[in-house]
Amino acid sequence: MGSGRRNLKNAAVALLSPIPSIIFYLSLLNHCQRISSTASDGDHSLSLSPLWAWCYYHPLLLANVLFFVNVNVLFWVISHIQSSHWMIDLYWTVIPVMLVHYYATHPLAQYNWWRSKIAISLTWVWGVRLSHNYFRREKWQWGAREDWRFTDMRLQYGKHWWWVSFFAVYVSQQVFLIGVCLPLYVIHSVDEPLNIWDFVAIIACLCGIVVAFSADTQLHDFVSRNQKLKELGKPFVANLDEGLWRYSRHPNYFGEQLWWWGLVIFAWNLGQGWTFIGSFINTMCLAYVTKLVEEWMLKQDYRAEAYRLYQKTTSVWIPWFKSSIGGKDKKA
């Protein structure tokens, strides 16, 4: 019963947390709409107060301000009340969906209708896929645990974690999330007809979603089978080396990166190739995370030997054929 109450409480906290930003943005839209209906010179922004005028003219900066106040500050405070940073993981799946709708509905937005609808639809599919994987992994519980990397950092920084976490968990996430979503801003800032590169971007994004979903499903099935074997007292498989995992040690990471770089193709096609910086930073961060994950795998005695062989024979990210050891192809 206690677990059920905690689950409901965490669900309520998660659902209510973004409301301040939503209310503020809806207020901006309401002000713009009301003034637009009464303005005769066509530039209704001239009648806005300084605060609303600033929000009107600086959509990207406003997104950063709302993120800082509502996520960095509010989520950080909540995390200390709950002694867990679980919520930022969940909102990784939600914030890009919120951002794409924000960029599409901002009063200054201009875009090709089809490209916008495609980007919004793809982002929703990506978000649903990642949310499903999150809740499936957490056994359909809200806030059951925080990311193991945050737990390790909590132990590492000790009494300083209360303030270090603000930068390590939240400010850093703002850089990553706003950065990787820059192409969604570009898509809703440039009105150009669709061309062949848009279809290349669509294919890349869809392939990334399919690869990530397949890899996560294969990993979930593997973990579930091992859990059942453990409960029955039977020996379990030390390492996943089937499906996509036979050709890549981290196919889920590869799929995720393919998705974000697919969005970059949209922006590059619209003459805003500089937005690759967000995906580049995210890729570098994921490379470091990959290193941490592999170190963690090697610390587990029961799978260390199998994983070392797996490292020698299997590509890190990009799916590829296995390498041979001693002239023979061996499974890890």
Results as ranks from 00 to 15, higher is better:
residue 178 I to T: 05
residue 136 R to N: 10
residue 55 C to V: 03
residue 72 N to P: 02
residue 247 Y to S: 02
residue 274 W to S: 03
residue 84 S to I: 01
residue 279 S to K: 03
residue 316 V to H: 09
residue 117 K to Q: 13
residue 283 T to F: 15
residue 179 G to W: 08
residue 321 F to M: 04
residue 321 F to C: 07
residue 281 I to M: 15
residue 236 F to P: 01
residue 69 V to D: 10
residue 290 T to Q: 12
residue 270 L to S: 04
residue 270 L to T: 00
residue 88 I to P: 07
residue 64 N to P: 02
residue 256 E to T: 02
residue 150 F to G: 03
residue 272 Q to V: 04
residue 315 S to P: 05
residue 140 W to Y: 15
residue 22 I to G: 07
residue 239 N to Q: 12
residue 150 F to P: 02
residue 250 H to D: 07
residue 25 Y to H: 09
residue 259 W to R: 00
residue 153 M to A: 11
residue 175 V to K: 08
residue 125 V to P: 07
residue 221 D to N: 14
residue 241 D to P: 04
residue 147 D to T: 04
residue 332 A to Y: 13
residue 154 R to E: 10
residue 120 I to D: 03
residue 50 P to F: 12
residue 290 T to I: 07
residue 253 Y to E: 03
residue 284 M to W: 15
residue 156 Q to A: 13
residue 138 E to Y: 09
residue 331 K to Y: 13
residue 213 F to A: 13
residue 310 Y to Q: 04
residue 32 C to M: 03
residue 1 M to L: 08
residue 75 F to P: 00
residue 261 W to H: 04
residue 169 V to Q: 12
residue 276 F to P: 01
residue 244 L to Q: 08
residue 137 R to I: 00
residue 61 L to C: 05
residue 278 G to I: 01
residue 77 V to I: 12
residue 307 Y to T: 00
residue 317 W to Y: 13
residue 96 P to S: 11
residue 87 M to E: 11
residue 78 I to F: 14
residue 318 I to P: 06
residue 288 Y to H: 13
residue 168 A to E: 12
residue 33 Q to C: 08
residue 203 I to P: 03
residue 185 Y to E: 01
residue 175 V to S: 10
residue 258 L to G: 01
residue 3 S to I: 02
residue 41 D to I: 00
residue 87 M to C: 08
residue 152 D to Y: 11
residue 47 S to C: 04
residue 328 K to R: 15
residue 181 C to V: 05
residue 200 V to C: 10
residue 322 K to E: 08
residue 255 G to C: 07
residue 244 L to E: 05
residue 141 Q to D: 09
residue 252 N to P: 07
residue 262 G to L: 03
residue 189 S to I: 01
residue 99 L to Q: 06
residue 187 I to R: 09
residue 70 N to Y: 12
residue 299 K to S: 13
residue 140 W to M: 06
residue 204 A to E: 05
residue 268 W to N: 00
residue 70 N to D: 15
residue 192 E to D: 09
residue 108 L to D: 06
residue 168 A to R: 13
residue 241 D to L: 04
residue 245 W to P: 02
residue 154 R to M: 06
residue 321 F to Q: 08
residue 56 Y to T: 02
residue 49 S to W: 10
residue 234 K to T: 06
residue 310 Y to P: 01
residue 180 V to A: 07
residue 286 L to C: 02
residue 308 R to T: 04
residue 1 M to V: 03
residue 92 W to D: 06
residue 39 A to R: 11
residue 187 I to Q: 08
residue 54 W to P: 08
residue 8 L to V: 02
residue 288 Y to M: 11
residue 65 V to W: 13
residue 332 A to I: 01
residue 306 A to E: 12
residue 181 C to F: 07
residue 82 Q to M: 09
residue 222 F to E: 04
residue 115 R to L: 10
residue 9 K to G: 05
residue 292 L to E: 11
residue 43 D to F: 15
residue 31 H to W: 06
residue 52 W to M: 05
residue 141 Q to W: 14
residue 154 R to V: 00
residue 253 Y to A: 03
residue 132 H to M: 05
residue 309 L to V: 10
residue 85 H to R: 03
residue 12 A to T: 05
residue 232 L to D: 15
residue 88 I to L: 14
residue 31 H to K: 09
residue 260 W to S: 02
residue 234 K to Y: 12
residue 271 G to Q: 13
residue 161 W to V: 00
residue 142 W to R: 06
residue 309 L to S: 11
residue 120 I to P: 04
residue 315 S to K: 07
residue 55 C to H: 09
residue 43 D to V: 07
residue 35 I to Q: 14
residue 197 W to G: 01
residue 145 R to Q: 09
residue 92 W to E: 10
residue 326 G to C: 11
